[in-house]
Simulated assay, not measured.
Amino acid sequence: MRLFSVSTLLLFFSSSGLALQIQCYQCEEMTHDCSTPDFIVNCTVNVQDMCQTEVLVKDDGTHYRKSCASSGACLIASSGYQQFCTGKLNSVCITCCNTPLCNGPRQKKPKSCAAAVTLGALWLHASVLLSSVLC
């Protein structure tokens, strides 16, 4: 059995099209949303597969932290801070997403569309469960 170095494997994945790299906005403790081209970074290939956003409400206003993150670390952090995400003073909200530049400015969606997507996802999930039981 032959051992490959990390750089060899990364080169293989990159040349085979299997490398996963996204771009995210990145900033530290900004008092305005840093979703501008100046703050776009390339995340580490096959390691940082999510974008993370932290919104902190402090005495002097709302502060933003945005960065690349690994899915495990981001999901653990976001679930650990759910109880502190109140929108009030000293609130901390952490969100994760996995598409390019998804931690940028919020897109407003019509509520009926969001409800339809949620119902569609539930229907798909129920269909998959049902087919796995029947087959």
Score class of each variant (00 low, 15 high):
M1L: 07
R2M: 02
F4V: 08
F4A: 06
V6G: 06
L11H: 11
F12E: 06
F13Y: 12
S14C: 02
S16T: 15
S16I: 01
L18C: 04
Q23D: 13
Q23E: 15
E29W: 07
H32S: 10
S35G: 08
T36Y: 05
D38E: 12
D38H: 07
I40W: 08
N42K: 11
V45Q: 14
V47A: 03
D49E: 12
D49A: 00
C51Q: 08
E54L: 10
V55F: 02
L56N: 08
D59E: 13
G61V: 01
R65F: 09
R65W: 11
R65G: 00
S67K: 14
S70M: 08
S71Q: 14
L75C: 00
Y81V: 02
K88R: 15
N90A: 04
N90P: 01
S91I: 03
V92F: 03
V92W: 03
C93W: 07
I94N: 05
C96I: 04
N98G: 15
N103Y: 06
N103L: 01
K109W: 13
P110T: 00
P110Q: 08
P110I: 00
C113F: 09
A114S: 11
A114P: 05
A116T: 08
G120E: 06
L122H: 03
W123T: 14
L124D: 02
S127W: 03
L129Y: 06
L129A: 04
S131D: 05
S132G: 01
L134Y: 09
C135H: 14
